[in-house]
């Protein structure tokens, strides 16, 4: 029996609104978590590509991770940012993320409140950017920095981006680096990936 029918019975309701049947609840795996039709993407660079852009070549509809391993970032000459990873360079408003010149993690206008000690920036560090889709086209983004022992020393999180914001390539403002690694997933059918990217 429908809720409205019960209501009408109980309260002898005279409301003559049409009874709309509620759809049966459906449980299904959210699309961004269905990975059975995907293939893993794993790419590593130890030097800047010729055109200066690291192509993501993965589907941003699924979770992906960018790991950047570098030495002495604080020695990089860059007045605004010690280090920045710029995503989606073909668009005017690319996402910039990295360590700002004051020594804080940042993602565009968002900056962490935990100062990264300068001595850490004068040795080796690792920056790890993970982007996890949340469904409905939005993404959860987390940037973290690890010191040379592998200890996480600061993290910064945001939900302000869509999965589409991350489509494209990546530039790096503070070479040289030891390693840049991208791990993620690619749809098995190439044309599907284009669809995702144009969402």
């Amino acid at each position: 029996m429908d809720r409205r029918e019960i209501f009408n019975l109980l309260f002898r309701s005279s409301v003559n609104e049409p009874i709309v049947l509620e759809p049966d609840p459906v449980l299904e795996t959210p699309a961004h978590l269905k990975t059975d039709q995907t293939i893993p993407v794993f790419k590593e660079w130890t030097a800047l590509p010729a055109d200066g852009t690291f192509k993501l070549e993965l589907s941003t509809a699924y979770a992906f991770t960018v790991t950047l391993d570098l030495n002495y970032p604080a020695k990089a000459v860059n007045p605004e940012q010690i280090l920045s990873l710029g995503i989606q360079p073909e668009k005017t408003s690319s996402i910039k993320t990295g360590i700002n010149s004051e020594g804080y993690l940042f993602i565009d206008n968002l900056a962490d409140s935990r100062l990264i000690p300068m001595d850490k920036l004068l040795t080796g560090i690792q920056l790890v950017l993970t982007v996890n889709p949340l469904g409905r086209g939005m993404s959860f983004t987390k940037l973290k920095i690890m010191d040379s022992a592998g200890l996480t020393i600061a993290t910064l999180k945001t939900r302000q981006y869509t999965t589409a914001d991350w489509v494209g390539g990546m530039t790096l403002s503070a070479p040289p680096f030891n390693l840049l690694r991208i791990q993620g997933l690619h749809e098995a059918e190439p044309h599907q990936e284009n669809q995702t990217q144009s969402k």
Binding site: K144, M146, L151
Partner: peptide
């Protein structure tokens, strides 16, 4: 031990193992 201390210090952040 040091990883868990760091996790607590960062507000229960998930910390990678080396």
């Amino acid at each position: 031990t040091p990883l868990s201390e760091q996790s607590i210090e960062l507000g229960n952040e998930t910390i990678d193992f080396p």
